[in-house]
Each structure stands twice: as C-alpha cells, then as structure tokens.
Amino acid sequence: MAIKEKTNTQLFVDGILSENPIFRLALSMCPAVGISTSVMNGILLGTAVLFVQVCSSCTISLVRNYIHPKIRIPTYTLTIATWVTVIDLVLAAYMPVAYKAMGLFVRLIVAFAIITMRLEMFASREPLQKSFFDGLGMGLGFMFAMMVLGFVRELLGSGMILGYDVLGFKPLLFFVLPCAGFFVVGIMMGFFNWIEVVYKRKKEV
C-alpha cells in the first residue's frame, strides 16, 4: 500500500506528473483530441474537470463509510452527474461564448473515466484531506496536459498563444484542423515514451 505512505504534496505532484491522466494513464482522451485547439479551451475545460474532480472526491470521501459496496459505482456516477450539472449550468449562465465553443464536452465530463477511477481507487478509501489533494492533483494534471496540447496546436497552427500573435505567421495551418488532434496526441505520447526510454538507458549505463 504505497499510496498510504504518500504525503499530501506527493499526492498532488503525482497527479500532475507521474500519474498524469492524459499522457501517462491515457484516460479521457476525447477532449484531448476534440477541443485542444487553443490554450484557453484547455484552461476552461481543465477548470471544469478540476471542480468536478475535487467536489466528487470530497463528497465520496465524506460518505465513504455509508456506501454499500454493491451500489458503489452507481453512487459515484450520480455524484459526478450532480456536480457536472452544477458546473454546466454555471458555465452556461456566466460564460455562454466559451460554453458554446466547448460544445458537448462539458456535459460529457460525466463519462470521463479518470474521475470514476479516482473515486474508486482513492476517494472511497481515504480521508477527506488526502482525497482533496489527490483530486486537486488529478484535476490540475488534466488541465496541464490540455494546456500543453493547446499550446502546441495553437502555436503551430495559428502562431498565437491565448489569442495574442506571437510568431507573426502561421507555421502549419494543419494543426488547427480538428483531425490533427489525433496526430498531436499520438506524437506527444511517443515523445514522452521516448524520453522514458532514453532516461532508462542512461540509468543502466
């Protein structure tokens, strides 16, 4: 039970780096491919996921002793659905333009495997404080990955960062095309694997 020995800071950092939901665990790929066309999209969806993850983790952690093991998955799903409804209504009311740009994906957070997995693996066993930091780390890890993808695609596709013209020209328009998401994610994953391979080789030497 290595998880139990970890401190709060470690839990937090793990979510962002070594257990990054998109690059390392390869979960919730749909938004990573679908709407990572700009950094702003990544920040917004990342915030939504962070909110849902932290709130559901805390909720489940609080009631973890009262959930019958047989109905635990439906309980998780309904908890997540409730928090998704909250963030969905809030975004639709206060940020209608950004909400439109993200389309169905805000409401589809409910089907993200990463959140259910964290509830099952972590929040249903650990106390409130630890679950909070775990949720925070996972949510920020997701946000970080979405922002990296958005950064690459926005910079290479339209030469801009967060809407500001950085390069002054458009290197490869291909990257803002929706289907380029597959290539970017694939190449990034390959890149992360390659780093790992090189790192291991150095260690052996």
């Binding site: 289907c179 694939g186 890149f191 694997n193 390659w194 790992e196």
Partner: peptide, 23 residues
C-alpha cells in the same frame, strides 16, 4: 514501428489518418 511509438501512440496516428479520410 519505432519502439517508443509501439501501441497507443501509433494507433493515434493511424486514427488521425482515418479522420482525414473521413473529412
């Protein structure tokens, strides 16, 4: 396939080619 692209990464690239075709 290059070793670092084995498995999921190359599958993503293939899916990207399919997506281009589906355009």
């Amino acid at each position: 396939v290059p070793p670092s692209f084995k498995g999921l990464p190359i599958a993503f690239v293939v899916a990207g080619l399919f997506a281009l075709a589906f355009l």
